[in-house]
Design a protein around this nucleic acid. Sequence first.
DNA 1: GGACGTTATCTTTTT
DNA 2: GATAACGTCC
Length: 691
Amino acid sequence: MASALPGSLQCRPAVRCRVVPAVSLSTLNPAQQQAVRHVHTPLLVLAGAGSGKTLAITHKLAHLVNSLRYAPESIYAVTFTNKAAREMKARAGKLMGETANALNVSTFHTLGLNFIRHEHKVLQIKSSFTLLDEDDSLAMLRDAANLNQVDKQVLFGLRMLISNWKNALLTPEQALEQASDAEQTLAAKAYAAYQRTQRACHALDFDDLILLPAVCLRNEDHVRNKWQHKVRYLLVDEYQDTNGAQYELVRLLAGDRAAFTVVGDDDQSIYAWRGANPENLNQLKADYPKLEVIKLEQNYRSFGRILKSANTLIANNPHLFEKSLWSQKQFGDPLRVMNCANDDDEAERVVNEIMMRKLRGNLKWRDFAILFRGNHQARLFEKAMIERKVPYKLSGGQSFFGKAEIKDVLAYLRLLVNDEDDAAFLRIVNVPRREIGASTIEKLGAYAQRRHKTLLPASLELGLETELSGRPLNALRQFGELIQRYADFCRKGDAIAAINELLRAVGYEGWLYEQASSPKVAQGRWQNVQELLSWLQRSLSDANEKISFDEAVNKLLLRDMLERSAEDEANADEVQMLTLHAAKGLEYPHVYMVGMEEELLPHRTSIEEGNIEEERRLCYVGITRARETLTFSLCTVRKRFGETVRCEPSRFLSELPADDLKWDNAKTETADEKALVRTDRLAALKALLDD
DNA sequence: GGACGTTATCTTTTT
DNA sequence: GATAACGTCC
């Protein structure tokens, strides 16, 4: 085993020269073995839920390295989420030991990020470019295209159009050409302005991480040759989630050799809203006539009844490819449906039941998962678990990066790394308050635009005095100098110490206490900040990979942090709480799908837009996460922004085989009745007032 | 011109 | 039940 080698011999050539045992494929079924062995023409693996897809991929990685002698660093495996990438790395590691570390396993976005880092000169972008998150990107768009008085919804719509164009690899000019109505024309012009500003600020959004590499590979022969030489074999997981740009990226990386395997399942396509195009599965056949298609149809995960129910549900959707999943496992108990009085009741009953079942069945907390449609649904469950001291893990946690204090500190970090990051500048120029308000910013902006400068450098210029004077001018100048000074400290010395000192100098902790409703809340927020900094600290002092301050900040912006912290707690015994989207690819013995109501699981906006099929697939994904038992829950009444609203059971419940469902209607008590009466009375009152 | 308090409006899912 | 846009006060 490679791990038995002394440290000095662990370099790759040494490992490869040793006789490495060929990886055994005997644990795989025939279809899986075929998928692993097939390397000479492009391969599409249609892998149903729980069909041992990751097992096949990891064995293929091992097979390529150990049996076919591919250099591990020439193999690229791409996934969509950090979680999936981490899982694949870990499982490859179990199979092939240390060698697995040399494999390139990452998300599409991380791959793109690394590409841009390597090729930043060709792309004419600073190596210290910044990444914009959703909010920054919107703010930059608003700013760049002068959409100040535009409604947020409209802005959002424009941003989506732009994103779609980027995903289709269209330039602003091309977008303008094919714009068919007034909105699209406006959007195309906004796109042009947005892109100019991005360039000027050396800022990239998430779409650019795919777009730039794809365009660069397409246009620059020497870059394409270089990368096609680097990438000897390419594996893509969850292929149904790729968008146009990602498809192109795969095509260009694979090149004429077309040494690739893609794995996908059209029934699990749940990212169409993000531009994913499951048709890409079909497109492959057209682009690669030699494409081989292998189906994995045996499910190793779920009891028979769960699988049967999932199949029945998904049969209501049209299919790109026909497949039939089957299981050898026992049939199992009926799926239960808990009919609850209200949302509080739902949370309490689910948590109580988990506690009971854990005790009775001698199970672990981590055997249970609670799955929901929207992140906000987690709150009540969190509350119930805290009250009962049940350990839990809330993942998919956009929440951490969505927190205002984290975004503030990240904005400081970004500005330290890149003084041209206007989005970051705007976020924190007056946080904490330093008497720089809207009109000052407006004047600064006007000045900067005329001089083709970005905001921070502009605030330090003497010419600014013609626009501003007195207190506002001084405040701006002081702020600019402060950032410059600390950016210097960060590069020259101990970055973490410098940041701590900067936060102290601006009085950030005190600001948190000022803003928060209670000291306890502020304390929590400050702790979040500390957590962020300690991650940065760890990242910088990681002995394995030497990393610059700039790079560490960029990693943070890619949410890379979740990867790490999840790794630490992977073995913790906690009830898992996640969104249906985040749950894809994962499995649990006992699953609770909560909030099985119309307008929630087929989500309201999806009903309105007629996107029921994707919601059904989402439901399918949820059901197929369960190994042994599956419980649904729904409420008669639910609080929706203060008001209590009646709920209807999800249509998907009625699409499941009735014989396999067991309804549990034990309502708790009269609280719900009261709430019902109250809503009805309110509705009556409203009707009266309207007349 | 900026800070502070009040009201209206929502809330999908993720890199 | 949080946040952004709005209006009022200093």
